[in-house]
Design a binder for these strands. Structure first.
Lengths: 150, 150
DNA sequence: TTCATTGCAAAGCGTTTGCAGTCAC
DNA sequence: GTGACTGCAAACGCTTTGCAATGAA
């Protein structure tokens, strides 16, 4: 399991590299460093968090570059963006995950991922009814753990 | 249909009034004026838009009060809040509407409302699987109109 | 060499806060 | 009368922008 991670790092670097080529963007070390750090994380993160862990590792990196690079990573679907209610944008790596949705526990802030195939059927219906092509969806449930009182 | 609107205005004022009582909040004219303006709108709006239309109608109202009052209206479920991707919060009146979800056309910015009962089943399953009680959900589809080429 | 990209700092902008004046109770 | 509420302006915090320096092609 553990060495999947470094294999994956190689794979996503490759994907990003091809994307940058195709758009004639430069392959700067900063861009790949950021990609690496993101794929090293196992949780959702915001820009400030990413900035702080990269500073801690003595990278010379600016918030501006983080925002720019994340933008590119969104474009090539290596990262997903979330707006969990507040004004701070949250992100997560997305390449090896299946598309999934989120259950947010409002008391603890915990975020649980789930995937329900029935959502796909709803999507299909909406596409037919309104004659649209849906590129993306976002579904969040907000709730609380039920405590058993024994 | 038209005079439903003023009947509704009375009804929501009543609801808001009861809510303010129950929380020992004061019934200021500003709060009711804001409620009225919101229930006069038929679209989604943001604070800046609400501010501008109230200014245009010569209300003496501040953004601070708009934010404060909206907060109260959210609490008593007379208004719903949305975060359609960007950092600007959007709102809509919610008292007479059935709970519904949104399809956002990314090219035109148009927002279409829909309601699919199957979502309820998904919710039920998630509640059972994770042993949670879900208070709220948000579902957005993002897509584009399909053009017929005849 | 050239100009896309970078780091840094300043500016933007939606939202929140502080405060003196006001008015619902 | 009193303290919750208001308008105003300043502060906040995330994000974007401007710009001189840098380095990928």
């Amino acid at each position: 399991m553990k060495n999947n991670k470094s294999e994956n790092q190689l794979l996503v670097r490759e994907v990003f590299s091809k994307f940058l080529d195709s758009k004639s963007h430069r392959k700067t070390p900063e861009r790949f460093a950021i990609l690496n750090e993101i794929y090293d994380l196992d949780e959702h993160f915001d820009i400030e968090f990413l900035f702080s862990i990269m500073k801690k590792k003595n990278y010379r990196v600016s918030r501006a570059t983080l925002y720019n690079t994340i933008e590119l990573l969104l474009e090539c679907h290596l990262v997903r963006k979330h707006q969990f209610g507040s004004n701070i944008a949250h992100y997560e790596k997305s390449y090896f995950d299946r598309q999934h949705d989120h259950l947010i526990l409002t008391d603890t802030g915990e975020v649980i991922e789930f995937c329900d195939p029935r959502l796909h059927n709803i999507k299909k219906s909406i596409e037919e009814i309104f004659n649209v092509s849906i590129e993306k969806h976002s579904l969040y449930f907000y709730g609380k753990k039920i405590k058993n009182e024994n």
